[in-house]
């Protein structure tokens, strides 16, 4: 028996919750960097005119706050014995609730939902389940990240 690349006993591991404020400037930079042009992503008045509380986040922005809200965005890999250079991003999904608006405090609760191997252990799939809620306890998104760890 070879030693698994990622210890399957880590299934169920819960990480410390992360709380982070969605800042308008960060959201504008993200929107610019990803080709958005609709003023609802940049201008508070335009966003409010469209019925949002403040400028609204593009679809995948919420996930970035989980990195932005931590001193070391890769410390969950460290904790699991995963080397960043051995990882690939396999898949990503978002199921949406209420829109994320500037000024929201986003709280993340996240855990390891599954770990499984493919190709005789050459590839290990690690599934992270991430729940993002706002300061009103409304669900912003349920996110699933599948990270592939390549055996070295």
């Amino acid at each position: 028996m070879s030693v698994p690349t990622v210890n399957p006993a880590l299934i169920g591991l819960q990480f410390p919750p992360v709380a982070v404020v969605a800042e308008a400037g960060q959201m504008r930079l993200f929107a610019k960097a990803t080709g958005q042009t609709d003023p609802v992503f940049f201008d508070e008045r335009a966003a409010q005119g469209a019925g949002y509380r403040a400028i609204v986040a593009p679809p995948t922005f919420v996930y970035t706050l989980l990195s932005i809200g931590r001193d070391d965005p890769y410390d969950h890999f460290d904790r699991m014995g995963i080397t960043l250079a051995d990882t690939l991003h396999g898949s990503q999904s978002f199921t949406y609730g209420v829109p994320l608006c500037a000024g929201d405090t986003v709280r993340f609760e996240w855990s390891v939902a599954d770990i499984y191997e493919k190709k005789d252990g050459e590839l290990t799939f690690v599934v992270f389940r991430i729940n993002a809620t706002n300061h009103r306890d409304e669900m912003i998104a349920t996110i699933e990240n599948v990270t592939i760890v390549v055996k070295r």
Binding site: G35, P58, P59, T60, L88, Q92, T95, P99
Partner: peptide
């Protein structure tokens, strides 16, 4: 994936998006 999001926000307001899932 964010560029796929850009494609989607050209079709409908961002709050019309119920889910999005991709494989890389």
């Amino acid at each position: 994936m964010a560029l796929a999001g850009r494609f989607l926000t050209a079709l409908a307001p961002v709050d019309a998006l119920e889910s999005c899932a991709v494989r890389f």
